[in-house]
């Protein structure tokens, strides 16, 4: 996960509020990226009842397309704008060629089929872009830092990620709740047969939703690649966390995905930076130092287990399913 582990308070119980604020910002940023990936997953699952393990690979492919275009155009933002529809097209093709034939099958077939698709997509990326990751350069005006207020300096680009994430979340809220397409998406999620009986071209609707999900995942990949770099393994790393997000939020719920993404992003980031110090309140520094990394690595899964033990359908299960 992206947030730096290096920032660590040494020794005492006194809390550094500047660091806390910066880490919370990092947590929100991770949460918003998770939301971009998870929203596509939950959208596709909600309306198509389709489990797409290969969603993480689309995120990875989006990052690579964005990286290539950054070098071709010389402009990161322009590259993202061109890469988005291309990633959407990749999603559209995947829907037409693979996903479509799996809709009528059970979830086990979805999982295995898209598991095969991961191997195909990841190896294709390996063939096209090579085994190494690609570092993506940012334009100078995005590469700097800004001082938000006294003593709190954050990278400009992280603010851009947060801003974009919030804008997309708002856009999705508007799309799902106030547009014709959104109405069809909601209707399709509650009763697919009825929607198609009413004369809606459900097949095109499915392809559109799938492509939209792919674009969202691709956008997340493009946004993270200047920080981490575009790499083949990035898809497998985020997909499980994205699944945790939609399980905790309630599969198929956009609101649940948003809240769970932010919560998981914050818990993961803050856990990695502060658990060590929190443990020192009640155990020896040495014991804290050995146990904190282990616990913080498992933290989001423990949270998920606790939530599911009490609410097996997640926090915000969609009403009709």
């Amino acid at each position: 996960m992206p947030p730096a582990k290096s920032a660590k308070i040494t020794g005492n119980i006194h809390l550094d509020y500047t660091l806390l604020f910066i880490q919370m910002l990092n947590g929100v940023q991770l949460g918003l990226l998770l939301f971009l990936v998870a929203s596509g997953l939950t959208l596709v699952f909600g309306i198509l009842d389709f489990v797409n393990l290969a969603h993480g690979s689309i995120y990875m492919i989006g990052a690579f397309i964005g990286a290539s275009l950054t070098f071709i155009t010389g402009n990161f933002l322009l590259a993202v704008l061109i890469a988005l529809p291309i990633t959407g097209l990749v999603g559209f093709l995947i829907e037409r060629l693979v996903a479509r034939t799996l809709y009528t099958r059970n979830h086990l077939d979805h999982v295995l089929g898209t598991f095969g698709l991961i191997l195909v997509l990841d190896t294709s990326a390996h063939l096209i872009w090579g085994p190494e990751g690609i570092a993506v350069p940012l334009p100078a005006w995005l590469d700097g830092r800004v001082e938000l207020f006294e003593g709190v300096v954050v990278p400009t680009f992280r603010l851009l990620i947060i801003g974009t994430g919030l804008a997309v979340a708002a856009g999705l809220y508007w799309l799902v709740n106030f547009t014709k397409l959104g109405m069809l998406i909601r209707a399709g999620a509650s009763n697919r047969t009825m929607v198609s009986a009413l004369g809606i071209d459900i097949s095109t609707l499915f392809a559109l939703v799938f492509a939209l999900g792919a674009m969202l995942a691709g956008l997340a990949g493009m946004l993270i690649s200047p920080i981490t770099e575009a790499s083949i393994s990035m898809g497998g790393e985020i997909i499980i966390t994205a699944f945790v997000v939609i399980i905790v939020g309630g599969i198929g719920s956009m609101k649940g995905a948003f809240i769970a993404a932010i919560v998981i992003g914050l818990i993961d980031t803050l856990g990695r930076s502060f658990l060590d110090d929190m443990f020192q309140l009640f155990m020896s520094p040495q014991a804290a130092e050995t146990s904190a990394p282990a616990v913080s690595a498992m933290l989001i899964y423990i949270i998920m287990a606790v939530i599911l033990a009490f609410r097996p359908q997640g926090l915000f299960p969609p009403k009709v399913r």
Binding site: F45, F243, I247, I251, M304, L308, P312
Partner: peptide, 17 residues
């Protein structure tokens, strides 16, 4: 306690844990 796709994903998540 969970069913269907929740079961698939939660077993995967525990494995990752």
């Amino acid at each position: 306690r969970t069913k269907g796709v929740y079961f698939i994903m939660i077993t995967m998540a525990f494995g990752q844990m």
